[in-house]
């Protein structure tokens, strides 16, 4: 369980959870998640702040959710992935992949088998592993079907295996 006990207790015990509490508890994690999804740490902060700003504007509804931080994580991931796709369209295929990936993100990708995946596949795996969420819930969070998320997870494992074989054969 990754969410802090403070927010978990607030959300489980009472309906009153403040934006500030959720922000303080989950901001860094959401920024890290977005950076890990796209590999573009320069835009991770922007996407996370935009997602929190949207949550702030709708806090009457978002604050009543079971896990407001997951709502923000989903929105931030979608914003970052949309930006990544837009850049790829504008700069040509693979253009967005030429963004320099910092070392600590690269290490995280290798460690969590995310290196050769698309941002959407990374988001599926990270949300699945991060919160231990079942596939059905990850699919709901990402707005995708369960079959799509299962495919993302499967492709992620296959690509990782292929990457390991390539490295071993060198």
């Amino acid at each position: 369980m990754s969410i802090s006990a403070a927010v978990a207790g607030m959300t489980a015990g009472t309906a009153e959870v403040t934006f500030e509490a959720v922000f303080a508890d989950s901001y860094h994690r959401v920024v890290g998640l977005v950076a890990a999804v796209t590999g573009d740490e320069g835009r991770a902060e922007d996407a996370a702040q935009e997602a929190f700003a949207r949550a702030y504007q709708r806090w009457g509804r978002v604050g009543r959710l079971d896990r407001p931080d997951l709502w923000v994580a989903r929105v931030a991931s979608r914003i970052a992935i949309d930006q990544w796709r837009r850049r790829r369209r504008e700069t040509g295929l693979g253009g967005a992949d030429r963004v320099h990936v910092p070392d600590d993100v690269q290490r995280l990708w290798v460690r969590w088998q995310l290196e050769r995946l698309s941002p959407m596949q990374r988001a599926s795996i990270l949300l699945h592993c991060w919160e231990g969420r079942p596939v059905a819930e990850v699919a709901t969070l990402l707005g995708r079907s369960q079959a799509t998320v299962r495919t993302h997870l499967l492709i992620g494992r296959r690509r990782f295996r292929g990457f390991v074989h390539e490295e071993e054969s060198r």
């Binding site: 990754s2 860094h28 996370a48 592993c129």
Partner: peptide, 27 residues
Amino acid sequence: GPELDHELETLGRRLSPRVGGAHDAVV
């Protein structure tokens, strides 16, 4: 989950260390 959570938290702290400034910017 906890390991990944810790790594994401560390990465996020490095990228955006100031929570107070970020909160003001979000508001």
